[in-house]
């Protein structure tokens, strides 16, 4: 049917020229949304962990509430070993390959020493973070493997660790 559209207002027929569009005041809602976004962005930035290279790592679950802090990242998956996303070694059936006769991992040690020197060169004073390893390890790994990784780290000057875990 051609012609004017007819609306009903309180039971009376009203032509559409007389209907004013409803204007919602969105300012308060915008305010709330902006606050939520800032909060979420802050949390997101603090908790993002680059696990791209070690994407096959399944972290163990823990009740720890200590917040995640970035430091030198050593990731041990079931097949590969990384330092700051750089592959430095292989694992066969969850065991490190290419250990020296005294059971240290030479490439890991060398990479960590280099990484430490680079970090120290950037900072005039050594930061606390420069001496700590963030160990991102698969929960299925045996202690034998972790022990070799940790002892190699210690030989490279890193005796303190932060184990990355997923919150339970």
């Amino acid at each position: 049917m051609l012609g004017k559209t007819v609306h009903r207002r309180f039971g009376k027929k009203v032509p559409d020229e007389d209907v004013s569009p409803t204007r919602l005041n969105l300012t308060a809602l915008m305010d709330i949304l902006s606050n939520i976004i800032f909060f979420l962005m802050a949390s997101f930035g603090a908790q993002t962990l680059e696990l791209t290279s070690a994407s096959k790592v399944t972290l163990p679950a823990s009740t720890s509430e200590l917040s995640f802090k970035m430091s030198i990242n050593v990731a041990v998956g079931m097949e590969e070993l990384f330092v700051e996303d750089e592959p430095v070694g292989k694992l066969a059936q969850g065991k490190l390959v290419g250990l020296t006769p005294d059971r240290f991992h030479p490439k890991l040690e060398e990479t960590l020493k280099r990484s430490r020197a680079q970090r120290l060169a950037k900072n005039e004073r050594a930061k606390d973070e420069d001496d700590i390893i963030l160990l991102v390890a698969d929960k299925r790994l045996k202690f034998e493997t972790l022990d070799r990784v940790m002892k190699t780290c210690a030989r490279a000057g890193f005796t303190r660790f932060r184990f990355a875990v997923s919150k339970r």
């Binding site: 979420l40 997101f44 917040s67 995640f68 802090k69 963030l134 303190r160 184990f163 875990v165 919150k167």
Partner: peptide, 14 residues
């Protein structure tokens, strides 16, 4: 993303 990236740490030493 917030739900997917809940990671904590456990301090330890050798």
């Amino acid at each position: 993303s917030f739900g997917a990236a809940v990671i904590a740490i456990l301090p330890a030493s050798v």
